[in-house]
Nucleic acid binder design. Structure first.
Length: 466
RNA sequence: GUCCCUAUCGUCUAGCCUGGCCCAGGACACCGGCCUUUCACGCCGGCGACGGGGGUUCGAAUCCCCCUGGGGACGCCA
């Protein structure tokens, strides 16, 4: 157990998205590697937009990914007493002041500043104001130092320095008495003894605004590591326009969590030329040193490739379990038909997603309702009737059909007819599954079993050659 | 607009700190071939990048400066 304490602090104003998940993952991985503590904190100070539904969605997504935390979830909405006291503390110590400026005037000033080509900052009008008008609404602002520089050594980006004159006096408490993000994040990170903050680099500009607050409150300043953003194909910040961005949407599309984890970690982090990492390996190898500094583009195709890989190598029974509900949704009763295990085994090398896998499994449970007409005209020509009948005859000579038996069986047919497998196979396939594609016939027939195979062959003969 | 961050194949990246091993390696995608009872899988091969300009140096993807491009921030959102 080291003393490393990291946290993931999502705000429940939306689903857990790709970017957030990666930030959570980096935190999780480092905590596990260093045997530190991973804290989960829900930043729900925006009462307007935060919902319990999103909290649940985020928790579900983290559970699905396997990112379990050691402490929390803590809710900022339940810690208002603490924040109030801290604001009071700053007011008393002279590090903060009441500001009576109206939002409208501020807005106007901001726009004017932008027009003039300057930086839209608060002008500090109330900073040295000593009167306290009764019954006037006010916000509390933090007195940001006006001279000098605020600097920190980012664990990913390196040294970062900002002139304090670029900063303005940010609001730490709203008119309604609730605290704002830049303030609560400092109080909570400090109170929760977080000593390394790993977060998106959209927060990099917030850091020099937060550091003076740590100092004013007498807190120790943690270390920071700002992870680069994830962009869409057009290099714009990733958004719904770029397709699915919510983690759970990928679950719905039939992705395996390990594929998502593996994709996410390699987007921005590398370990030589290695592409495939198990979770154990990641816990062992992950580090901040190898996290890149520049933003990366989300590439769904590579994620799909990884998913393919993990499906290919996944435990067959697990996959069977995962697609059972999908099959049920399609009205298939898996107990009435071949063992799903055996079915999956013939299919898992060929599926890119669980949805693919489920779709391609259906033919084992449903005899063809109709036959693909292109396939029929191409492969099930009139002369193939004899082959199907011969096949039926041959099958009846076996009690059980293993894939090995089936291979033998085809050997006999080849000998008897003098035809090549290339002529026989496709014909039998269309008769059995209704289309021109399927796994190896040897496997398909073995899995279907003697009775079902015979029935389907007979069916095809009756329906296509009458 | 101002400030901050950033810059190697279309994309993710290795190499950069500690210049020569790099006329730049891997992966995805794409293209071609092989395998084959179909479609996939797999295997083999191909295409393809050091943003530009100045320096420093015998030598620069690697060090320095400028430009340009990209991203982010500038909220009583987080």
């Amino acid at each position: 157990m080291s003393n490393l304490r990291v946290r993931f602090a999502p705000s429940p104003t939306g689903h857990l998205h790709i970017g957030g998940a990666r930030t959570a993952l980096f935190n999780f991985l480092l905590a596990r590697k260093e045997r530190g503590t991973f804290v989960l904190r829900i930043e729900d100070t925006d009462v307007e937009r935060s919902t319990q539904g999103y909290v649940d969605a985020i928790l579900d997504a983290m559970a699905w990914l396997g990112l379990d935390y050691d402490e929390g979830p803590f809710y900022q909405s339940r810690r208002s007493e603490l924040y109030k006291n801290k604001v009071k503390e700053l007011l008393v110590s002279g590090h903060a002041y009441r500001c009576y400026c109206r939002p409208e005037e501020l807005e106007a000033k901001r726009n004017a500043a932008i027009q003039k080509g300057g930086k839209p900052r608060y002008d500090g009008r109330c900073r040295d104001r000593s009167d306290q008008p009764e019954n006037s609404p006010y916000v509390v602002r933090f007195k940001t130092p006006r001279e000098g520089y605020t600097e920190f050594l980012d664990k990913i980006k390196g040294p970062i320095s900002v002139a304090n004159e670029e900063l303005d006096d940010l609001i730490i408490q709203r008119t309604d008495g609730t605290p704002t993000y830049n303030f609560v994040v400092v109080v909570d990170d400090a109170e929760m003894r977080i000593n390394l903050i790993i977060r998106g680099d959209d927060h990099i500009n917030n850091t020099p605004r937060q550091i003076p607050i740590y100092k004013a409150l007498g807190y120790q300043i943690p270390e920071f590591a700002h992870v680069p953003m994830i962009l869409g194909a057009d290099k714009k910040r990733l958004s719904k326009r770029h397709g699915a961005t919510s983690v759970m949407a990928y679950k719905e599309m039939g992705y395996l969590p390990e594929a998502m984890i593996n994709y996410l970690v390699r987007l921005g982090w590398s370990f030589g030329d290695q592409e495939i990492f198990s979770l154990e390996e990641l816990v062992d190898k992950f580090n901040l040193e190898n996290v890149g500094k520049s933003a990366g583009v989300f590439n769904p195709e590579k994620l799909l490739w990884l998913n393919e890989h993990y499906i290919k190598t996944a435990d067959t029974e697990r996959l069977a379990g995962l697609i059972t509900p999908l099959l049920t949704d399609k009205g298939i009763d898996v107990s009435k038909g071949p063992a799903l295990d055996a079915v999956v085994k013939t299919l898992q090398d060929r599926a890119k997603t669980l949805v693919d896998l489920a779709n391609s499994a259906t033919f084992y449970y449903q005899a063809p309702q109709n036959y693909d007409s292109n396939a029929v005209t191409k492969f099930l020509t009139e002369d193939k009737k004899a082959i199907l009948e011969l096949m039926i005859l041959q099958i009846n000579r076996f009690d059980v059909l293993t894939s090995h038996h089936v291979e033998q069986l085809f050997g006999h047919i080849i000998d008897e007819t003098g035809l090549k497998m290339g002529k026989i196979g496709p014909a039998v396939r269309v008769a059995l599954v209704g289309t021109a594609q399927s796994p190896s016939l040897y496997d398909v027939i073995a899995v279907l079993g003697k009775e079902e195979t015979l029935q389907r062959l007979q069916n095809a003969v009756d329906r296509l050659f009458s």
